[in-house]
Each structure stands twice: as structure tokens, then as C-alpha cells.
Amino acid sequence: MAILSSSIARKVAMALSGLFLVLFLAQHFTINITSVIDPDTFNNLSHFMGHNFVVQFIAQPILIFGVVFHFIMGLVLEIRNRNARQISYNSFKGNKNSTWASRNMIISGAVILAFLGLHFYDFWFPEIVHKYVESNPLDATRYYPELLHKFESPVRTGLYCLAFVLLALHLWHGFSSSFQSMGWNNKYSKGLRGFTQFYAIFIPLGFIFIALYLHFNQ
């Protein structure tokens, strides 16, 4: 059982859960971008995701577990790492040898977690109430109007955009770092890093575009 408590096992666990969440982000983005392209498609996909047994009762619990695991493991690592240097430097120039994003994953992660709270409050909890508490009849046309309604507020739209900026910073380091953690560092790593950095910019920027598009097209 030594592998489960070793520093390398913890790195790999963070990497695997992070990669799983990266895949989820791509899927979430693919569905959300249809709200800009064709609201009917967005409604149909949302209805499918909201009522498909596999998505609701297998994929969703796995996703929630992945998020909770990534968060708890990140917190455990942060506490252990802070404990490894109990007296801080009076002068520490981290900017000279590493990026802000790489040194502050806990900050970007905490902002993303806070955003997830808001996101659940906005969409997930109302959806659960709609389906399982109020037991409303099926309506495959309600998703786009509800989405549009949420982005009426400039404050909410601003908070979403801010969270996506932090998501970009988190991905900028985390996505490529996960491959290094799993032992992947070879002649293909430069190309892979390029792809992960493109992803880190493209996906959050896409989410920002969707939020702003919905806000300004009420």
C-alpha cells in the first residue's frame, strides 16, 4: 500500500483526475457552444444529458467524485507542501524561475471551486428541483431560455468570465504538468505542451465568448 501514500502516487492521482476533468471540459464546451450556433440543438443535447440514465446515474456521479477528489488531493498536497518549509524566506523571487500560474495552482483552483459553487447554484440545483422535487413534465425546449435568463445579469456574467480567466491559468500549468507527473517527458513533449497551452486558452476563451454572447443577445 506504500504506493498510495507516496509523493509520486499523489502526483499521479492529481494528474489522472485533472486529465479526466480536462476531458469533461471539452465535452461541456462542445454542448455549450451549440447555444450560440443553434439553440434547438442546445435544447436537444441538454435534454438528452439531463434525462439519459448513463449520463445522470453513472457519468455524473463519477464526475462529481473526480471534482471532489481533485480538490481534496490538491488541498492535502498544499498543506503538506507548506509544512515542508515551516520558516519562509525573507526574500523569495519565484518569478525568476517559474510562472505565476505554476506557483499558485491552489489560488486558481480555489477560485474555480468557488465558481463551481455558483454554477451549481445557478444550474444544477434548480435542475434537480425541477426534475425530482417538483416533478415537472418533460419539456425539451426550456433549456435555452433558462440559460439566456441566467446571463441577463452583468454581475453573474462578469463572475463567470473572471472564473474562466483563472481556469485558463490553472489549465496552462496543470494540463501539461499532468503528463510530466505521469512520466511523459520526451521528444514529443514540446508539441504536447503547445497543444495543452492552446487548449488552456481556447476552451476558457470559448466559455467567455459564450457568456458574453448570451449576455449581449438578450
Partner: peptide, 25 residues
């Protein structure tokens, strides 16, 4: 590798988060 990593953890060093600062310095 098993013994050296176990000893490294036992000594109380932190976990690597791939910042790359070590390589630069």
C-alpha cells in the same frame, strides 16, 4: 527507486508540482 522515494518522503520534503524552478536554479 522504491527505497529512495520512500526515504525522500520520510525526510519531510514537499511534493513536486512541476513549477520547473529547480531546473532553472
Amino acid at each position: 527507486v522504491l527505497n529512495m522515494v520512500a526515504q525522500m518522503d520520510k525526510e519531510g520534503f514537499g511534493n513536486c508540482t512541476n513549477t520547473g524552478a529547480c531546473e532553472i536554479e
